[in-house]
């Protein structure tokens, strides 16, 4: 944690009728890059909306530079946001879009500042095409340009790498890291673990509206590497197969599921794969299906939350 946090959320909850989108989340973030990690629907975007003042917390408080972003219009000068939505102004070029942001932020030379921001994200300021004619990756970069044109102290990026090709991802990740190293507070959301690994070491993990974990990415990674894998096996002789696998010590645990299925927990998927076929052959069992469960990010987060 930073000694002087730039962004502070205290006991923040947000609900829409009966639906709880964010539940009692507290954290503080200082200069540098912080990744907000979580599966789709975890509440990341709702949290970002509250951080930027776009939505009022149902409970709790959000402060940016010690000020309430919902009520204090002036603090928006210090915030740059790349929202998740893909829609853009249909009749504006990239340059007009970014220059508009510069003008609304009161920059002295909006056109020049727009040029600079566009060049920073690798877009041609002289491109005469309207934004809808851009590729998805170009539109995404234009959104980043409008967010950084005024050199904000706090940069909130909601899935900013969506739609970018690998080269563009590398460039933007480098830009975000540089902005963080220069002293800005950069908060980036993502549901892709590999992206987060490249962005920086500090992570906040959200799952089902709650803050599931906060800390160093490498600790989280180690926790995930220790995570047992769950594999479903469909076979015509589940009991015989289960007994043999337990005998060989190939699984940490197992559960019979119906007449033809087993769910196996293993710490070593390769060892299980090596053991499974010979054991099945020895017991005369036919393997109808072998499928890894919990391989998606949702499963990873569930495990992290359980820990």
């Amino acid at each position: 944690m930073s000694a002087q946090p730039t962004v502070v959320a205290e006991g923040v909850s947000k609900w829409f009728g009966q639906l709880v989108a964010v539940s009692d989340v507290s954290f503080d973030v200082g200069p540098g890059v912080t990744a907000l990690l979580g599966p789709n629907g975890a509440g990341k975007s709702t949290m970002f909306r509250m951080l930027c003042g776009l939505a009022q917390p149902s409970k709790g408080t959000v402060r940016v530079l010690g000020r309430d972003p919902r009520l204090d219009v002036g603090v928006t000068r210090a915030i740059g946001l790349v929202p998740q939505q893909e829609t853009v102004f249909e009749r504006l070029t990239g340059r007009e879009f970014v220059a508009l942001a510069a003008r609304l932020h009161g920059l002295g030379e909006p056109e020049r500042e727009a040029e600079r921001a566009l060049e920073t994200v690798g877009l041609d300021p002289a491109d005469p095409r309207p934004l809808p004619a851009y590729s998805k990756g170009m539109r995404q970069r234009a959104k980043v340009a409008q967010a950084i044109v005024h050199d904000p102290q706090v940069l909130v990026l909601d899935e900013p790498l969506t739609g970018l090709d690998p080269r563009q991802r590398v460039d933007l990740v480098a830009l975000f890291r540089r902005l963080g190293e220069e002293g800005r507070c950069v908060i980036v959301s993502s549901h892709v673990l590999a992206e987060v690994e490249r962005l920086g070491s500090r992570v906040l993990v959200m799952s089902q509206g709650r803050l599931a974990a906060a800390g160093d990415f490498h600790d989280l990674r180690a926790l995930m590497d220790d995570r047992p894998l769950r594999v479903r096996v469909r076979t015509d002789r589940p009991r015989e197969l289960a007994g043999a696998l337990l005998e060989r010590g190939a699984v940490l645990g197992l559960r019979l599921d119906g007449d033809d299925s087993l769910e196996l927990d293993t710490a070593d998927a390769r060892a299980l794969a090596r053991a499974l076929a010979p054991v099945a052959r020895d017991r005369g069992a036919r393997l109808l299906e072998v499928r890894q469960l919990d391989a998606d990010l949702e499963g990873v987060f569930r495990y992290v939350v359980e820990q």
């Binding site: 002036g74 000068r77 210090a78 102004f89 504006l92 508009l100 003008r103 609304l104 932020h105 009161g106 920059l107 600079r116 921001a117 920073t120 950084i148 005024h150 050199d151 904000p152 102290q153 902005l179 220069e182 002293g183 800005r184």
Partner: peptide, 24 residues
Amino acid sequence: MSAVASGGARAPRTATTLAAYYGL
């Protein structure tokens, strides 16, 4: 981009921002 500059930015002028909104 240069170093953090938002702290020193001036409030935008009403005429400028109103014109920007209006034009858009």
